[in-house]
Amino acid sequence: MALALELDQVSRSYGAVVAVDSVSLDVEGGEFVTLLGPSGSGKTTTLRLIGGFERPNGGAISIAGRRVDHLPPYKRNTATIFQSGALFPHKTVAENIAYGLRMHAMNPSLIRERVGEALGIVQMGGFEERYPSQLSGGQKQRVALARSLALRPSLLLFDEPLSALDLSLRLQLRADIKRLHDELQFTAIYVTHDQSEAMAMSSRVAIMNCGRIEQVAPPQQIYNEPANEFVYSFIGESCCLPVRIDDGAARDQQGRPVDIRLAEPPSSGAWRLYLRPSRIRIGNEAHGCANTARGRVRFTEFLGDFNRYHLVAGGLEFFCDRAGERQYQIGEEVEAGWDTGDMKVFAA
């Protein structure tokens, strides 16, 4: 069976600015693939290329095995859910949902059936005659989702649909979209800059940076086996320790020795050590760790579920999180430790 979506070396540039730089991506039917990246990484442009709102400068885009690069949006079998919902303000909810079906010359009774069905799916039954201005932000997004689902497109495109909503609503809609995907098994491309959203919903995540895809993998793999330094630093919280190694001994960038002991020190040279703050142990718990560092507490932050201790060791600064009461005071010397598997080393 043909792939639901196939991007082959797709590029898009605006004058000298390259927004999308030969991106390739294969998506199977029923997959939920998220494009995740900082702003300006080309994720939205990629989505707009798939939807047909932009034309690529090079490469090929195929949807369900059919080349679509030069087709306008109204000839592509995709449906986009926009950030703002982009509902037609002068049409009722029912008219909004019926619009796409009418454009495809469906017969009226079938349209009515589909509209009702779509509203049921997004739990918006009874809102048929409302105008968009009478809906809340979350309701608008539900209607937008229903409008796209009603068309039964071969590809659903989400353009940061939740970013304009407040936190509780965002979590609720996130769960709803996930549930709908499990039930209906549609194929979705989802653009976001919110990693927790990406991690929670996706079957695979594509990390984008500077117009390129850095890594495509299931969420767990992205988190545990980042392909490169960018992915590691972008996903989750991390501390970066820029060090110089001379014959197994660590120094800071100014060349002063620091009290860091590594079980398997890399060869001599400049390196960046990355650690997850949640995986660093501190104080007594650090005893017996393969890797340790001694530092002084510079300041602490109370962050609800845990305390965050900011430590200085020579010219290096890092932080670690620990649940429970605050145990260490400012200025106190403490030991921090971590397992070799929790550390990533990248050449500087």
Binding site: G51, P73, A86, Y99
Partner: peptide
């Protein structure tokens, strides 16, 4: 006029004239 709304129409199959 919000461009996204026009794009949404194209996206749902509305040709430029319609």
């Amino acid at each position: 006029v919000d461009r996204r709304i026009i794009e949404a129409s194209y996206d749902l199959g509305g040709r430029p004239v319609r």
